[in-house]
Design a protein around this nucleic acid. Sequence first.
DNA 1: GGGTTCAAACCGACCGCCGGTCGGTGGAGC
DNA 2: GCTCCACCGACCGGCGGTCGGTTTGAACCC
Lengths: 238, 238
Amino acid sequence: MPFPRIVKPQVARRDEFLDVAQRLFAAAGYDATSVNQIIAAVGVSKGAFYHHFQSKEDLLEALACRFAEATARATRDIIEDPTLDAFARLTSFLASMRRHKLDTAAELRAAFEPLFRAENLQLYERTQRAVADVVRPILTRIIAEGVVERTFDTPDPESAAEIILHLMGSNRDLIMALYRTRDRREFERLGDRLLRKLAYLGTVIDRLLGLPEGSIELADAGALRVLACALDGPPTAA
Amino acid sequence: MPFPRIVKPQVARRDEFLDVAQRLFAAAGYDATSVNQIIAAVGVSKGAFYHHFQSKEDLLEALACRFAEATARATRDIIEDPTLDAFARLTSFLASMRRHKLDTAAELRAAFEPLFRAENLQLYERTQRAVADVVRPILTRIIAEGVVERTFDTPDPESAAEIILHLMGSNRDLIMALYRTRDRREFERLGDRLLRKLAYLGTVIDRLLGLPEGSIELADAGALRVLACALDGPPTAA
DNA sequence: GGGTTCAAACCGACCGCCGGTCGGTGGAGC
DNA sequence: GCTCCACCGACCGGCGGTCGGTTTGAACCC
């Protein structure tokens, strides 16, 4: 018997699976990563995997949930800060969401590039959906309170929240293209378009919440960091 | 030799594959439909399939392209109508896109329900992307001309087009939920939300194009037809 | 502390089927 | 009657998933 059996408590082993899967999925995509690869990386048998998860899909779901919970944790305390008014809450909420996206991994490129690969559609979509489900009620509440405070003017806070969340994901294709291109000129063109679009998205949110133009600023330091980091990266690298 | 060989010309056979695949994908999803099922339905061998397509993914791509071309054909003549001004072009463009979506199949439910099933993410996303690629330049041109005519007021027609197209897809989750629910009260709640959101989306587009409020009306007959049709369907059926 | 028990954790051979390959062949058109 | 392309179908490695069996450690008794 070449391999001694190693037993770990429930949660530890499960987290181990999630960590390994996250890494492998990010590197090669959900479809292209086999359960065999995952169990090999963890160093356990098939049985162990199917003891902790009902299926490969179940693992993906769990991964999305874990990410959503982390996002929620990072943004939840904002809404519970009684010293802020609705507008301050909204802006720091938006900022927090973007910051959290960035901070989830130390290496920006390593964190972003894989998630924007075409083969990771499932992973991305699943994660986004889980995050949206958890974050939508929070955002709705902020907006509704803002309407009461007369900071915002919108007939339908819930729809507004949904649309804002949806708009946050509308840059995916652009960022994806940005990370994929090897041509410097094309890269700069795309970067410029991204900044313009972020600026425009800011005014779109202004208008749909009935805020004075220029209130929401999305093309901020965070976005610039992504750009700057990308600038260091792909067009010169392999 | 039980089966006589039937030879057909290139295009006819290829279309046959596309038709069959569209039907099967819609019924069971891309992943859950195997190449074996497709060739069985067409009545040919594996070799025939891989003679016409490089891979299963290639077939999906071809399907998305075919749909995108059909959409483009249906909307293209609008922009070439010189008698219309930019606003008329935009509204009939939007209407045409929704009409096309509806008309692509006689049976509304049969056409919609499958595309909104969770397992059809790939099919849906691929199609949407192909359609967007083909439609974006058209919409951008309409908006740009509208800016010249001073009908629209936006600093960035390309971003505006992108955002509008993106917003058109933001009801997917809602419609999906609408089709899935079996509970009458929940169903009516969702239907109400959909109409409210469509109304709101109209004003969002108004605002982002600098139009007077109430110019764009999305909660129109087409949307109502979907709702009415859905009303006849799921909550009473199995 | 040593023995007994039991469920949870884990093992790995096995299954049906998948997407994809390839050497071969029928038949329409020249 | 020859050519060439559409088509054939046995075959492949590997996939996700199953299942009867084995190991392990904590709880309990003495």
